[in-house]
Nucleic acid binder design. Structure first.
Length: 116
DNA sequence: CTTATGACGTGGT
DNA sequence: AACCACGCCATAA
């Protein structure tokens, strides 16, 4: 039997890849970040890092999903520096207490899920 | 059907 | 650190 509809679904229980992507995205805690590639793996998209990037850019306008908690594997914001959302992402991350050194986030400290 | 394109990742130089 | 080539995979043209 499937779990109660009122409980949070597990990634394996969701059949639509795009829904799994949104589910995992929703689970990144405040103050933490996840890379495109890691998010893809967790969502069962294999090496679909670029697919994650595409879908992030297509999230509905009013979405409450934490799109800003996704950065590249080097801990850097991947949005172009001249893109207005770049500044918003930086602002949101800093508001959550994330520290950037030379434009980079220490993934060993803020990366999610934990590696050690 | 073939190419091009991403808010990417990895491995090699 | 910087650069590059390739792999990746859904979408668009």
């Amino acid at each position: 039997m499937p779990q109660s509809p009122l409980s949070v679904p597990t990634v394996e229980a969701v059949d639509q890849p795009q829904q799994r992507f949104m589910l995992v995205l929703s689970q990144i805690p405040p103050g933490r970040v996840c890379s495109y590639g890691r998010l893809a793996e967790l969502a069962g998209l294999g090496r679909g890092a670029r697919l994650v990037a595409r879908w992030l850019g297509q999230l509905p306008a009013g979405s409450r999903l934490p799109w800003h908690r996704v950065v590249n594997a080097q801990g850097r914001i991947s949005l172009p520096a001249d893109h207005p959302s770049h500044a918003e992402q930086l602002q949101r991350l800093q508001d959550e207490g994330i520290v950037l050194r030379n434009g980079r986030i220490d993934l060993r400290r803020h990366g999610w899920p934990d590696t050690h």
